[in-house]
Design a protein around this nucleic acid. Structure first.
Lengths: 150, 150
DNA sequence: CAAATAAAGGATATATGGGTCTTTTATTCG
DNA sequence: CGAATAAAAGACCCATATATCCTTTATTTG
């Protein structure tokens, strides 16, 4: 009797790492003091090379900024700080996530719904709109307060 | 520039298949007319052998009933029909899903929250409680109405 | 009982996300 | 300029979800 349970998750690990990294950068970096992938990987306990890949991807999509060389590293410019969380998710996990059917059907909408559609849309959409309204800057500020941790 | 987007999902494919299969059985099987994995796989366009495995797992956990041999197949007994959807999800994807942190942190709760915790708990919990209140029987009945499809 | 049927079960293959390693490019500083 | 530093980029490996195949067990029917 082998009870195999597949792992499932709302956000991919890459995306989770990306969000934590961005918040970390928002909190610890400034234009005069950049943060390296090394330090970030250690603090957040994320595999270094994997994190580098993720930061690359974020940089390419202009969600974080970087410079090479000594004292180089990552930081957020004024535009980056106003990135909304849904953008990061979109870049990492693709645009399909917030539109996808719970049951995995290719066609599922209010005009052609799966049996679960009307039962659960509100949670998917609510989640989406929340992330759409939340900026990196705001999210990072939460960390100051109370017991909030990364 | 390789923009790798990992696919993410709330429910694993196995779980999605499981839910669709159970609803299919609820709608098409009766104690006098069982449904075979073959027919189900074709109708739902799910790989047959993979579906068989899933049905096995559901049967072992007594969420569906089955008999072997000619005219054998799957059906739901009175108890099976009252299974709530969250049970199926739990059996397929494990119990962790509805408790898991969005950011993947091992410790995350209202007393020790991640930055996103209070922003999104309501959607995770709302989703969970919805599935907890919904039975297979009820879900299957939705399919009768309107344009709902599997 | 024998043959046929279909689920149960186990072993194995494939695809993908996750993770590692090495080389190249850009930048800083002595 | 040359050495050191750190990101960018590409190749590669590993674990797991997904998918397939084959054998065994149970049940029905002639």
């Amino acid at each position: 009797m082998t009870t195999t349970q597949s792992e499932s998750h709302v956000l991919s690990k890459s995306c989770q790492y990306a969000l934590r990294a961005v918040v970390y950068v928002a909190r610890h970096a400034s234009s005069s003091h950049l943060i390296g992938a090394q330090e970030m990987a250690e603090s957040l306990e994320i595999p270094k090379h994997f994190l580098s890949k993720i930061l690359q991807q974020l940089t390419r999509n202009q969600l974080v900024s970087s410079t090479k060389g000594p004292h180089g590293g990552f930081y957020l410019n004024d535009v980056n700080e106003l990135t909304t969380i849904d953008r990061i998710v979109e870049v990492m996990d693709g645009p399909g996530l917030f539109k996808a059917c719970v049951l995995g059907l290719p066609e599922c909408s209010s005009t052609h719904p799966c049996p679960l559609h009307f039962e659960v849309v509100e949670y998917r959409d609510g989640f989406y709109h929340k992330l759409k309204r939340l900026t990196v800057k705001e999210l990072a500020q939460f960390v100051h307060k109370g017991q909030i941790h990364l």
